[in-house]
Nucleic acid binder design. Sequence first.
DNA 1: CTGTGACTTTAAGTCCGTG
DNA 2: ACACGGACTTAAAGTCACA
Lengths: 78, 78
Amino acid sequence: MNLAHFFGPAVRKHRESLRLSQEELADRAGIDRTYISGVERGARNPTLEVMQRIANALGSDLDVIFSTAREIGAIKDN
Amino acid sequence: MNLAHFFGPAVRKHRESLRLSQEELADRAGIDRTYISGVERGARNPTLEVMQRIANALGSDLDVIFSTAREIGAIKDN
DNA sequence: CTGTGACTTTAAGTCCGTG
DNA sequence: ACACGGACTTAAAGTCACA
C-alpha cells in the first residue's frame, strides 16, 4: 500500500499535535528547516538514519510514525 | 529506542519466514544482491523508497516491518 | 512560519569480484 | 547461499536566498 507515500504527512501530524513549528522540529533533529519541509511534503526521499532522528525529535519512534502513516493512507485511499 | 538499528534484522526475519534467499528478495525488489546483504546486517543506510520496495517484495508493509523491529529490539535490549 | 529552486558535498546504490 | 571489498555512478544530505 506504499506507506512511504504517507511518511511525510505522518510526521506533519505528529509535529502539529505537539504544536511544534517545522523550525523547532528541525532544531531538535539537527536538520535544516527546509529539509523538514521537503520531507513532510514528500519531496525528499530520506534515509533510515534521518527518519530515526525525526522520530526521536518527535518523542516517538518509527513504528508509531508508520502506524500513523497507515491511518492517513486508509483515509486518503478510500 | 532506535528502531532503525533493528530494521535489517526485521527484514531478515520476514525473508526467512518466507524461505527466500537474499538473491530472490533482491530480484523481487529490483535491488542489488550485495545491498540486501548490507541492509540486513545494518551496514547500510537505505532510503525510504528502497525500504518500501523491500517491504513490497516481502509481501508486507513498513508498519509491519517496524513492529517486527520493535519485537526484536525488545528482546535484545534486556 | 513555510514552500521552492538551485546548488555543492557526501553517501546511497550498482557492478565487478573474492573466500 | 552469504559476507565482504573496491571502484564506480547516481541520488540524498545539507545549505541558502527568496517568495
